[in-house]
Design a protein around this nucleic acid. Structure first.
Lengths: 137, 137
DNA sequence: CGCTTAATTGACGTTAACGTCAATACATGC
DNA sequence: GCATGTATTGACGTTAACGTCAATTAAGCG
């Protein structure tokens, strides 16, 4: 019996080794193990060896995007919880909604900062282009 | 002679103590000294005491915005250089333009990530709202 | 089955970005 | 002119996020 293929729809292409994921995302295996130790991903095991499914691959994508946005791993951890929150009970759903909203306002604030920075740099760009015209004429 | 008031247009309201800035930006004086040690700001001195001008105050604003966007201090340092680059020579201006452009593409990539994250959360928000309707009906 | 390659665990190292003293100097109001 | 508050300069401590290395274990293969 191949216990890891127990679930019918689970094929080989849905299973990843630590090295495959490390390679795909250009991170080290150490980093992946570190994320597991922080509870950000929870791969299965075959014996002692980790086996990653789609869910963990997706989580890795979310983690890396979070990092690119400058969030800490603990913020990312909170963020990931939003993706598998329990919404069978109204109180839970209400709670989820609040957390989603607060996260949204963080992201929107960051977007404002970003847009200001972009505008400043675009102004610099334009200025530099004008200068170049003068200087090379 | 009050050397620090030498420049005619420089009034008291353009000068800040370390505590004033720390207070205004809700950071510690240690943080400000740390930024100085990294060359991010270069306050004047009256005796041994630091005196900050508008320029450094502005730089602090840029530093903090950079941090909110998730940039490291060394990235922020590069970023600050764009603001006081020499553009008297065409080669310098050309170089500045390249750096501005590369920074712009970083920011735009980040903006894409941000917008995807916002959309995902908005979808969650909508879903949660629908769930709540069902659950409380 | 022995060899090579891949994976695991534990321990210690490292870098960034400050925090936290402690000792000392400066300034200032009463 | 002295107590009291503010500033400065080391020096060491701390946390996050991994890197690095060594010792084992497990897995594939000719």
């Amino acid at each position: 019996m191949d216990r890891i293929l127990e679930k019918p729809a689970e094929k080989k292409q849905d299973l990843f080794s630590i090295a495959e994921l490390a390679d795909e995302f250009s991170i080290s295996t150490r980093t992946i193990r570190f994320y597991e130790s922080k509870g950000l991903i929870i791969p299965d095991r075959v014996g002692t060896t980790r086996v990653f499914r789609r869910r963990d691959r997706t989580r890795l994508l979310l983690i890396l995007r979070g990092k690119r946005l400058g969030f800490s791993l603990s913020e990312i951890s909170d963020y990931l919880e939003l993706y598998d929150a329990d919404n069978t009970q109204a109180t839970q759903t209400q709670h989820l909604l609040e957390r989603v909203n607060s996260r949204l306002s963080m992201l929107r604030a960051q977007k404002e900062d970003l847009e200001i920075a972009v505008k400043e740099l675009e102004a610099m760009q334009e200025y530099a282009l004008q200068q170049l015209e003068k200087q090379t004429s």
